[in-house]
Design a protein around this nucleic acid. Structure first.
Lengths: 192, 192
DNA sequence: GCCACCATGTAAGGGGTTACATGATTTT
DNA sequence: AAAATCATGTAACCCCTTACATGGTGGC
């Protein structure tokens, strides 16, 4: 039950509505916490009813009204408490890797194609995160920002996302190439 | 609903019981698919009742009897079908990263400590995977095994796990060091 | 006019997590 | 004698996913 903490952590950055949070989760938070929009609406309601966040109606004339939330002192306490209990090891679920695990026993072609698609997606994410990081640190160079810039939390998690996507990109690229080579020059048996 | 495919993929490697699968999931499959033992027992029952795997009782005298499973032709068809539908993007959930995201607003010390613990865990995993890979390729050097060795699926997913742990190790190490430096030499304001 | 975007909600059903239960054998 | 390993199961509860519903505004 730690979606709540991911939401609280995201709201430390400023006031956001469920819809805005959904986009934030989609582009950056998804590096370390996956959640679909519907979960956020549900969780925001629960968090407010428990007093960990406080909602505020914002009337808009050019578009639908929205409700934006901020973390309450009780919410801060909850985060503080959460930081002291040992975190569980992270969980990963990757369909694509399941396919690769089975690659000796099923058709290789579709797997290679999916790997190559994923390579493109990873590349796009690398570029995106690179730009997000540039935006976060503004005029400062990276070394300076890491030493003194603020906020540092979002910067660090984004760096993690970048490293992860780079690592993913390398692996999917190598794996796709390797599997292609293996179907081009198979098993090497009985060169009779 | 893709735990089933992770189980099927794992069973391609040989006959395993629920208990054995649990250990395999714990050490290697967890690189790309997290599941607790209880899920496996449940899923194995479902898969067998659907005819995708076939169980076989193994009588043991030195320890409790067990039931080992193999993938049926129907199970192979299901895997084959699964390989052709586009995979969903993977999901990640990391409590530790949630803490780092919030690091500007909560106590830093406990977070640093957890990062350092995680660094040790990552190091241990790197060593483990390195040895697993050695075991898988036997006498062959890596380049040769990648070109011709079999099975290649488990080798590739293990390589991914290794890369992931290395990347994690680097990030947690750097992040812990950086946060330590920042609390040693804070904000740098008003050097009056 | 139609599609995309903004903005939120209810509800059903499936999947995942945790607690608890059982019991034999081997190791410390 | 206690703890760890082997081995599997039932049940409750919570979380997550998906489908569906609603409705206003802005751009093509």
């Amino acid at each position: 039950m730690a979606l709540r903490h991911a939401v609280l952590a995201a709201l430390l950055d400023g006031e956001y509505s469920g819809y805005q949070l959904a986009k934030i989760f989609d582009v950056s938070v998804s590096n370390y916490w996956h959640a679909v929009p519907q979960q956020l609406y549900t969780e925001l309601s629960k968090l407010e009813s428990e007093g960990l966040i406080k909602g505020r109606q914002v009337i808009q004339h050019d578009r639908p009204n929205k409700r934006v939330y901020t973390v309450t002192p009780a919410g801060m306490d909850e985060l503080e408490r959460f930081a002291t209990v040992p975190t569980k090891p992270g969980i990963i679920r990757e369909d694509l890797l399941v396919l690769v695990q089975a690659v000796d026993h099923i058709s290789v072609k579709p797997i290679i194609e999916q790997l190559e698609e994923r390579a493109l997606a990873a590349e796009a994410k690398v570029e995106l995160f690179t730009r997000v990081l540039e935006g976060l640190r503004g005029d400062l160079d990276e070394e300076t920002y890491l030493r003194k810039g603020e906020p540092i939390g979002p910067y660090l998690t984004c760096l993690r996302g970048l490293a992860h996507e780079q690592s993913t990109h390398q692996w999917v690229t190598n794996t796709a190439r390797l599997l292609r080579e293996r179907i081009a020059e198979p098993a090497e048996e009985s060169e009779s």
